[in-house]
Design a binder for these strands. Sequence first.
RNA 1: GCGGACGUGGCGAAACCGGUAGACGCAGCAGACUUAAAAUCUGCUUCUCUUCAUGAGAGUGCGGGUUCAAGUCCCGCCGUCCGCACCA
Length: 716
Amino acid sequence: LDLLKAGLVYRKESSVNWDPVDMTVLANEQVIDGRGWRSGALVERKKLNQWFLKITQFADELLEGLQTLDQWPDKVRLMQENWIGKSKGLRCTFNFVDSPDGIDVFTTRPDTMFGASFIAIAADHPVAADLAQHAPALKSFIEECHKGGTTAADIETAEKFGFNTGLSVQHPLDPHWHLPVYVANFVLMDYGTGAIFGCPAHDQRDLDFARKYDLSVTRVVAEHQEEDSGFQGDIAYTGPGRIVNSHFLNGLSVEEAKAEIIAKAEHEGWGQGQIQYRLRDWGVSRQRYWGTPIPIIHCEFCGAMPVPRAQLPVVLPEDVTFDIPGNPLDRHPTWKNVPCPNCKEPARRETDTLDTFVNSSWYFIRFSSQPKDKPFDRAEAEQWLPVGQYIGGVEHAILHLLYARFWTRALQHMGRLGLAEPFKGLFTQGMVTHETYRAIELQTDAKGNPRLFNGEPVIDYHWVSPDDLYAEDDNLFEKGTGLPVQVGRIEKMSKSKKNVVDPDPMFDQYGADALRWFMLSDSPPERDLEWSEAGIEGTWRFVNRIWRLFDALDGAATGEDAALDKVLHRAIAGIGADIDALTFNKAVAKVHELVNAIEKANSSTTKTEAIRTLVRLISPMLPHLAEEGWMVMGGEGLVATQQWPEHDPALLVDDEVTIAIQVNGKLRDTLTLPKVADKAALEAAALASEKVIRALNGAAPKKVIVVPGRLVNIVA
RNA sequence: GCGGACGUGGCGAAACCGGUAGACGCAGCAGACUUAAAAUCUGCUUCUCUUCAUGAGAGUGCGGGUUCAAGUCCCGCCGUCCGCACCA
């Protein structure tokens, strides 16, 4: 309601995927090959009244704000940047030849205006709707445009269609130049002005359209020396070049010409420079029961009225059924019937509920502050926020992470929270993935005969859990039904696809520590991890090895072990750095190295100390084992509360280093030499090497490159 | 179509600023211990060739290039994955 008051909420008609059989709105993901995923019916585009949040008001802020998020992955920032999609161009009017009105278009290529050959408007454009009232042919063309899905595959293969309205407009730069107006299926109503001017020579879609309807194609940008206005072929030229066939623009670069035209349009008053965003307002209406109710009451006389604050929160009814398609709130007998808060006449509750992403847009604020009487306490929330290190999958890059940024800025805008960005640092972890399995079943009618659609049998798929499979002659079948099972792609584990492995049996068999260690071991956390149990045995053995090490602790040991001390301090430094960098797989490798070294070492005070230190090093990754070890060793309190061990930087450097000796870039020998050895000493040692002498085979070295502490390369 | 990432042994992967490719682990092989097995321990384990060693050659998707030196940098391909997608 605060957002509504701040003018950040509105209601408008918008297009949705509509399944005419199940009578429901479908998400894009639920439209498969243009058909409803359940009903198999052709999906239509339908207009529904929906609530929107005005995220576009913050488009520029959200874009600019990305630059402050230096602890976010570049990938996510780039995805958001592309999603917001800022572009600069010209908005201008093409006036009708015989009426005072005109059609507004937006273009990012005003430099190509002299190459215009037609105007195309969206099927939903008001001009098209007007004309259609008296033109049945246009009306059916528009209906045709509404059919056909909105899926990627559909769009890619969709042919361009147009309908010549018979209207003509004047070119703004030459009133005697008239252009035809088409309604075209490839023009979108919700980007720009819903209308374009077509410049076929320099836009692929326009060229496809022009070739199909035999419209003129004029070259106005020359890549090299092409001056002629004719344009051959079916590939538009969209690169840089010099403007030609364009009167006063001739000879300018594309960029110069854009600036020139925008300046002229603004000066003469027929257009202006405009910034356009790809980002659209956030449609939050869902026709579902499970969602936060939208606190609005629709009154026949007063319109959409906010629910009075005293009546908040609006609570969902619990006596609902889900046995038939559609929103249970809509058909509930009483819940939606309430008096209008203003005129008290009978009115109707909003039965749409909010997208769940609305809730996740501010949960972190509530986490930081949970007063009973309001969503959060500003001072308390500000004390904790922003979130220092946020961890989640990339799948939220442009959904949750953009919505939450918007929500935070909206709260700031309304003076509710002094915070521009909710998440300071972001780490996008990989997904745990697994093969998917689908059982195939032919649909049958009431008599048990296969159901046909356009003569083809209708096939039902359902996902099968890996636990519900059995193999027979190299083929997979579903337990219980015996249906054949197809192995599908490896995808992130999800409840909907059932490609989930329950870790509980492994947990029972090997314990929480072994399982945790196993998951940290091999794969870097930002990478997807294909789940496999191969290796858990080895992990479990390693946990036992450490345990035996604690057992072998020798308090009476004497003597020191300088070599082991070095390994230990190197491990302390390395493991700490790896944990800081979230490269746990490398930390695990270093623990292995340390344990290997301790096991091989003879008894000494150093070894005893190393084992005691090991307990603290493994504690973040093997907490139970570490606590047991800590207790066995008589440590005070919990190891989890101990300081991270200090490392001695002096022990990280070696007195002696292994130097690679190359001849012509090929490794011929390695020599262990004092770290302090200077270039001359290294060169001398290298040239003295028997293997080097053999490799040189009498040839005199032309040049010797010495990298102290690393290698010597003899060029012969 | 646009944008991005990635490509290293049988497998998961390491490799800092261009400087010994394959750390560490899984799997595998051989051996010790054992009546036997498990567990444990030891050794081997990128590929090819040979005179079998302190040997030679090849090798990080493919083809070029820069450099004394390239998994790493540059150019061009091929492939895989991710995001967006008729955005004017």
